[in-house]
Amino acid sequence: MASIFSRIVSGEIPSHKIAENDEFLAFLDAFPIAKGHTLVIPKKEVDYIFDLEDDLYSRLFLFAKSIVPALEKTVPCVRIGVSVIGLEVPHVHIHLLPLNSMKDADFSKKIKITQEELAELARQIRQNI
Results as ranks from 00 to 15, higher is better:
H16K: 06
A30S: 12
A64Q: 06
I49Q: 11
L52F: 07
A119Y: 08
P98W: 01
R7E: 14
G81K: 08
S83F: 06
H91K: 07
E53H: 11
E72M: 14
I67G: 01
N100H: 13
N128Q: 15
L121W: 04
A2Q: 13
H93A: 09
F50K: 13
V84C: 08
D47I: 05
M1Q: 11
L121D: 01
K65G: 09
E20K: 04
L52H: 06
V89R: 05
V92Q: 01
A19C: 09
L39D: 02
L52I: 12
I85M: 11
E116C: 11
V68A: 12
A26H: 00
H91D: 07
L56D: 09
D54N: 10
S108E: 09
E20Q: 10
V78T: 14
S83T: 13
H91T: 09
D22S: 15
K112Y: 09
G36S: 02
P42G: 11
A70W: 06
P32M: 00
F5H: 05
Q124G: 00
S83E: 06
T38D: 02
S83N: 06
G86M: 01
L28M: 08
N100E: 13
E23Y: 12
L121C: 05
P14D: 10
I129H: 15
I13K: 14
I13S: 03
S83C: 15
S10M: 14
G86W: 01
S66W: 05
S3T: 12
R79N: 13
E72R: 15
I94M: 04
Q127V: 03
E116H: 10
E88L: 10
K103G: 07
S58I: 12
L99K: 11
C77V: 01
H91E: 04
P69G: 15
D29G: 11
K65V: 05
S15L: 10
P98Y: 03
A64R: 06
N128E: 15
H93D: 01
I85A: 11
A19V: 07
F107G: 13
N21W: 00
I33H: 02
R126F: 00
S6R: 10
I8A: 04
Y57M: 03
D104F: 07
S101H: 08
V75R: 01
M102T: 13
V9C: 07
L71T: 03
V82F: 02
D55V: 02
V84T: 11
V78K: 15
F63Y: 09
Q127W: 08
A26C: 04
N100D: 13
E23C: 09
E88A: 14
G36L: 05
L39V: 04
D104A: 12
Y48P: 05
T38Q: 13
V82I: 12
K43N: 07
F27D: 05
P42V: 07
Y57R: 10
N21H: 03
Y48M: 10
E88V: 15
S108I: 12
K65D: 11
E120V: 14
L28A: 02
E53V: 11
E20Y: 08
I18Q: 01
V78P: 00
Y57P: 04
Q124T: 05
I49F: 15
I94D: 01
S108H: 12
P90M: 04
K35P: 03
